[in-house]
Design a protein around this nucleic acid. Structure first.
Lengths: 135, 135
DNA sequence: CTTGACCTTGTACCTGAGTACAGGGTTTAT
DNA sequence: ATAAACCCTGTACTCAGGTACAAGGTCAAG
């Protein structure tokens, strides 16, 4: 069994982050020692690593909580998990599309403006934002 | 000239959002009517649209402020604008790369797991969140 | 000249994902 | 037996990007 500080050290997150995860139901309520210290099972380290890896591919803590819940649900299926992943994927693809469009816009703007020491009022990039509010 | 409410309506954002943009230097300090009402130039609508478009692809308000701020800099040259655009372009490309990596990770996970009605304890997606050492 | 719709300012609140203390209790080492 | 090092709870704060009032001022219509 691990204290909160030990768990924090072993899992590589802040002690307060662990409290935060507890508050938000991502870690189950820990056992207590005589003196009132939290005692986490050593498997909690794995659980936190799970959380961190899922975050790294774009899942929110809420979604991660759902996935952790699925793990404890006997009638949950791979399809349920797959559906969550599919949503994340669609989200990521949408973002990539938007960024690609913005990139093209910037490239177009840049190819129109030769740059160099031309004064700013001749800049075709700023012209395209064409906005003459002062100061 | 537009009041704050008119600007809000025309640009499709909340009146309070306009105040927020003002406070944070994304809109220049508005003129005032006799009675103390803000008077925005009608070009402010365009400016807000630009802010919203840039936000939509992941630019922060700080980044947007820098972009918009160029036009208020008297000694700036086209080269300066171009350099900034180049930075934003690099930013966008980095973001696209990160998202593409996330996407690939998700695709890999999903192709390993057939989904369907397989029980959750056989799910290779969850397994992979639980088992890898890094990320 | 009053009503209602609009405007002003300041301040407080919201989400997400944490982080930072304060003020107190416990455990361990010397 | 006492100090250091840890732990507890509760609350408040961070950042971004807003949103929501309240208390009061202004403007136009009837």
């Amino acid at each position: 069994m691990l204290t909160r500080g030990e768990l924090a050290k072993l899992s590589g997150v802040n002690r307060e982050t662990i409290r935060y995860y507890e508050r938000n139901g991502l870690l189950s309520v820990p056992a207590r020692s005589e003196g009132g210290y939290c005692l986490f099972p050593s498997t909690a380290v794995k659980r936190i690593h799970f959380i961190k890896r899922a975050q790294a591919v774009g899942f929110s803590l809420d979604e991660i909580k759902t996935m952790l819940g699925l793990q404890d649900t006997d009638d949950a299926t791979c399809g349920d998990v797959r559906a969550l992943a599919q949503e994340r994927l669609a989200d990521i693809e949408r973002k990539i599309e938007m960024l690609t469009a913005m990139k093209q816009t910037l490239l177009d703007l840049m190819s129109d403006c030769p740059g160099g020491d031309r004064p700013i009022n001749e800049c075709t990039i700023l012209e395209s934002f064409s906005n003459h509010e002062s100061v």
